[in-house]
Design a protein around this nucleic acid. Structure first.
Lengths: 234, 234, 234, 234
DNA sequence: GATGAATGAGGGTTCATTCAT
DNA sequence: GATGAATGAACCCTCATTCAT
């Protein structure tokens, strides 16, 4: 499965010092092919599900042939899992890079809400993949070892923000960081995951820039409104 | 296209016109068969998607044979659409029966939040069906005429509640009823639609009674917290 | 999408209550189809091996379509096993019907030799199937429970014949019935199983009637010559 | 089918005539690679047939890569034919070296029987290859010119032995040397070619040393018993 | 109302083979 | 001599669907 890898040829070349470089550059660009396949798979599975996605369509979209999918990913499920993993890892990595701890609590929360919303806008296939995976009961995600670890840190960060916000009187008390995280995700995710049926039900396209902006602002408003200190009820 | 032909049962009936009760039984059985098929379809499509769902599996689960599916529903898509419609209509009908206008605004909102949450608990297949439908871009839902009308009234009800709440000082001002409706739905829906991946990510089962109760309370808390009048910031 | 509509058939039936039986005769002759498939499979696998045999070719030869093979036999291996089993069982059954015990020992042996030889002539595909199965280390035959029992009785019969022949001085002593059985089989089997290479090597067709007759006589001669009582050496 | 063509490597070596030792090594390696491929092919085709044998498996077993198979043997069939030819030629060559004419007739016959038996024991893949080839109707063997000639001499030798044995009263008269040759081969060959199904049928492993010894003795006994002069019946 | 038999299109997958390095 | 990447043909198999009873 590994490709590119260390070019054993150089040793031989070393025995003949008169012939230096020349084979440096490229394989027939295996990595590029692999990436094209992966991108095509993300799009296909995202829109049609695992069973509905067509291996032929992926190959064609990747401008390669079916055989290559099996060459690189073993089988259809392997390809699906690879696509899922990549999309998931990308999300978590960028989430981790937010570096929320440096910001004041309220701003950090706003930042997180907006990041999630914007990420879904910029990566429309992600929602589809996660949705599909959930339909299948996360059967495939469970096989992936790398993903379990990515969640913990963010919840810890949120917990820290909540504590800080509480002590400076910016936030209400007793907020569960896990629930808060779920709610932040939910308010954005649902809008995109159910966009099709909601657009149909409400008879207007939720994907219009104006609609997106309104929803983005609303999400922040809900979370910040909820987090306001409770004493103001009195 | 149409077949059916020879119906041995009816022949018997035709030969013995004195036994009308038999006919009733037959009719009742027919409806029962139809319902069993529909229920099986809901379960199958909900868990595996449209492409992943198997006609054979549905027939077996319904304790009938494939021919009956085609007899009653035309084809696989027709069956899928029927399943989707039924689930959807049931939801909207019960939502309509809530009769929120009779309640004070805050209570009405709480009632709505809890209803949605509880409904998903009691109808686990609904989430699956909606999710599947969204993966397919609501392609099938768009064909169904009955569904468009069911949404409007609820939003109108919500708008009324918001106005009433505002004037008695119970709610903040400027809340968009559509956004609010989406948020209420989102906070519950996401928890169930993504339960599989979230359970995997957090390493604990979100379906436990305790976890459900906590989430239910949180949803209400977020919405009510958000709706608190804004002047308390001052 | 859904239709059902008015059941035209019932009217017709109601109008003609005089039509009694009529559905007696036949399914669409499932058993015949099954047998055609089996026969085609025997021929195909016999001549090309399990891996070399083509499912398409079998379907075409059986004048049906591929799907039916799977309908009746599960998969390619299942079909292969069924073909093998049938061929094998047929052989053993006819072997059992020889009823050698009623004959004098020498005649019984001759009978057995000739039967085996003739059987291979009449069932040319059998050799091919057994050969293929042996190439695969009898992997599939081991799965078949029915076949183990068919061998024992014949060996016992042979043992009885040898004892009888010994006491009347017709046979030499100390002959192992299992070895004898193997030798009788070998002398005929090899001629057919290796006919292709032997014909090539010797430059003449071993399948000519004349050649067959000569080999048939030789086989009997070898076995009977071997079984002659040993005292004649003295 | 086989070509080999110009060995591009030698060109490179030819460009550096100052390093002669390299050439030897390269050549030796080349031949070693070829032999490893051939040995791996014999094993693979012997156990799985031509269609069932995998080019990848052969390459891996030979610790080289697929390209080399094509480099040395043209294509899969060419490799198969080369493997078959080698195995066949080896057998005939050793058979020719037996030099049976120097021995007294009876001993010569015994020698031949035992040689054949032992050869199959020492070259288990040979049986597999011949079997496979026979399944395919010796289609490939017919293409090989070298093989036709190898048989004649042995039959002539046998004919001489029979004549000699007859005149000294050691053998019966009228034995056809070709039939005798076939029978000698059959009694050993069948035991190995059908070992798998026979072991299954009799429920014991025919490959055990004890079983092998018993069969070996029996084969000689049958042939010698058969060849005894006929007058002893009187 | 119900059933077994039949069908063809197309799905995923594997294979021998070749190209470029 | 050797290797990874690429290819297309075909193979086994499955699916939704329909026919005849």
């Amino acid at each position: 499965m590994s490709r590119v890898a260390t070019l054993p040829a150089t040793r031989r070349v070393g025995a003949m010092p008169s012939r230096p470089s020349l084979r440096v550059v490229a394989t027939r660009d295996a990595e590029a092919t692999r990436q094209r396949i992966l991108a095509a798979a993300v799009a296909e599975f995202s829109g049609k599900g695992l069973a509905g996605g067509r291996v032929d369509a992926i190959a064609k979209a990747a401008r390669t042939n079916k055989r290559m999918l099996y060459y690189y990913f073993g089988d259809k499920e392997g390809l699906y899992l690879a696509a899922l993993e990549q999309a998931y890892v990308d999300l978590r990595r960028q989430e981790a890079e937010l570096d929320l701890k440096r910001l004041p609590p309220r701003e950090a929360i706003t930042r997180l809400c907006e990041f999630k919303f914007d990420y879904f806008v910029r990566h429309p296939a992600l929602i589809g993949l996660l949705t599909v995976e959930n339909v299948h009961g996360a059967r495939y995600l469970k096989r992936s070892k790398r993903l379990r670890e990515l969640h913990v840190s963010l919840v810890e960060t949120l917990a820290g923000l909540l504590r800080a916000g509480e002590s400076e009187g910016a936030f209400r008390r007793g907020v569960d960081p896990v629930q808060l995280y779920l709610s932040i995700a939910a308010l954005s995710y649902f809008y995109f995951s159910n966009r099709a049926t909601l657009s149909t039900a409400f008879g207007r396209d939720l994907g219009r820039p104006q609609a997106l902006a309104a929803r983005r602002a609303h999400v922040v408003e809900v979370i910040q409104g909820y987090l306001r200190p409770e004493r103001c009820d009195a």
